[in-house]
Design a protein around this nucleic acid. Sequence first.
DNA 1: ACGGTTCAATAACACAGGTTAGCCTTGGCC
DNA 2: GGCCAAGGCTAACCTGTGTTATTGAACCGT
Lengths: 241, 241
Amino acid sequence: MTGHENYLVRKISTFVDLSVHELKYLSDLQSSPIRVKKGREIVHEGQAGQSAYIIHEGWACSFKLLPDGGRQIITFPIPGDCVGLRSILLRTSDHSFSALTDSLVSRIQAARMKDLFNELPRLGAAILWAASRDEAMVVEHLVSIGRRNAMERTAHFLLELNDRLQLVGLASNHSFACPLNQYVLADALGLSTIHVNRVLRLLRERGLVTLKNQMVVIQDMAGMKALAGYVNRDDDEQIEQ
Amino acid sequence: MTGHENYLVRKISTFVDLSVHELKYLSDLQSSPIRVKKGREIVHEGQAGQSAYIIHEGWACSFKLLPDGGRQIITFPIPGDCVGLRSILLRTSDHSFSALTDSLVSRIQAARMKDLFNELPRLGAAILWAASRDEAMVVEHLVSIGRRNAMERTAHFLLELNDRLQLVGLASNHSFACPLNQYVLADALGLSTIHVNRVLRLLRERGLVTLKNQMVVIQDMAGMKALAGYVNRDDDEQIEQ
DNA sequence: ACGGTTCAATAACACAGGTTAGCCTTGGCC
DNA sequence: GGCCAAGGCTAACCTGTGTTATTGAACCGT
């Protein structure tokens, strides 16, 4: 264990206590870390090759491209997150995945992942549990885009990011470093860049939140939650065995 | 086996050949079938109780409600589909789930599902594979709502339904029975009822597709696919094990 | 045959968000 | 120091979609 996988361990440990053996297995599962330059595409939609990836440092995004050149960002994997688990079951990846900042990732071979479920089912369940949470996030994202207006949607998104980052210790109670620019936000929120700009200004003017110099500061947490209709993750939920 | 689980078997058999033993296990896994009246809510968001459900007959929808009374439909489970697998890992259900027509469903107890993975991992993998497909559908839905306009989105949705129904033999090449009314479509597509009506008229006027008397007829398959930017499911993908 | 309910259809109007077009700041690099 | 690229900001205008309101057809139970 070289230290960078602490985020994953930290996240999983919040819900199951890992034994020394499990920790070791978790560490051996992964390839040695790979440096990825900002902007570099790691997996391309339709690509065969069955690997999942774990992010140790940096931010990434998974997305789909449309024939007309449009892009919809599905989710922003952050340190400790696992991407492409689905491509282990399906034969090809159904979305692309690229680094938003210089990053450090490891690859997980499909075969080893399958072994894991036989050998350490408890650890396997913990990983699936984490994946389930990610799915739940995609669902919430769907709801946001389908039924919340631009402001609610943006607020909701920032609140959720804040919560996720706190889980791995990358956010204080109400602020976090955020390398996402307005173009990227637009592709995630299903809006135009210009409208993202408008919305951010409104949120700022109302004293709710600021995004400046790669830093998000939530200034009125209660106001934000009210606006977004945000419900806290039920963080005491436990995996039961 | 009373016959009604044929859809599930049929769907799974498309990708793995099930042994007699596996078929039996799959059948024993499920509670005896439960009749559910049209409109009845089967699982309520936040409800504890860890069960998944399998649909044998009828249509359902899974959705989330918003504080302002809005509703976003996530997906329409059809015969052979499994709902709420996620609530087996998370402790509570993160969305509601109700019957759109009189339906027949079975419950699957969490514990038995977990046993399955130990005892018949191949069958377990097949079920997870089906679940992965459903996830992929949610992602595609997200892309639709985020980056396709109302017409493209509607066309895409109908094409996808057609494909799914074909998989269980409930659609011919280009038409299928569809109990969804315009209100329900609106909540799925993130549109207003009125706009769904407009869009359906446009699609009809352009000779692309009609929805009349609970029947969808795709009249110009090529035109629809071009409009929606629809890519066929890669139906020859195999689960390998 | 009757009233009630559900669903589809249309029209007129309103507004959220998209589009086009610039300008300004910052920071890196030759 | 000067150029260039990336990212942020703003304004004016346009359009896709939402809203409100109303009508009609089909079906249902009594």
